[in-house]
Amino acid sequence: MRHDGTIGRRLRKAFSSAYLFYLYLPVLILPLFSFNDSYYISFPLQSFTWRWYSELASDPSIIAALYNSVQIALVTAVLSTALGVLTARPLSKYSLRGTKSIIGLIMLPMVIPELILAVSLLVVLNQTSIGLGKWAVVLGHMLICYPFAVAILMSRFEGFATVLEEASLDLGATPFQTFWRIVFPLALPGIIASVLLTFTISFDEFLIAFFLSSSEPTLPVYLWGQLRFPKKLPSALALGTLIIAVSFVFVILAEWLRRRHSATGSTP
């Protein structure tokens, strides 16, 4: 190609590398100071310490919040992925009338500010007997995780040969058996990726949990409460570092799974 090695290309590369560094700056700053032996988050760095991490482990309310977060994230991930499978399959298999508006409706929670989602749910839940707590948070989180699950699974089902299902029916398998023996195994990488990513979204989410969790705080809500106390700041950094580490591992795993094989199914 003709724009190889030009000044423009080199400039773009330099800019892009700098920009990438800027993208990672906050993610690098938190771990850096979480090992710094000082209450103040400022340079120059003091000596290295595990102190803030051991402080975390000895705090029972953190363990309780962690337990809430994992419970909520797990239920949210499984439910929204199951709903996502149900939705993505027909959307990628048939060209339905109204497909565009259906997808638009499903993706709507992605563009509405989370605060609005949270307060509108708060109004409804306060008016009904469902009330606040873990299930309320699960409902809110499902709303924001479901579009992601649909998007991930639709790309997995894209080009997924319908003829494989027909072949299975033709060979005597019922529709139910066909789902478990053909569709599910072929979609499995996408399903796992969706579970991992929706788990991460729910696990990280703050605002909805802040409004709806009531007396059962999740980890981010607990963290928010700690930020008011300067003495707690270093251990909040440690907690944040751990949350970021979990997210990274989950997301890298999900991306790897998602891109390893494609699900075309028929002859290559």
């Binding site: 003829v163 072949a167 029916l169 033709d170 060979l171 398998a173 053909i182 075309t264 002859t267």
Partner: peptide
Amino acid sequence: AYRRPCNMVFQNYAIFPH
């Protein structure tokens, strides 16, 4: 389909890839 006494060889064979 799954209760009929006939079986099909599909156009691109539809071999289960997994």
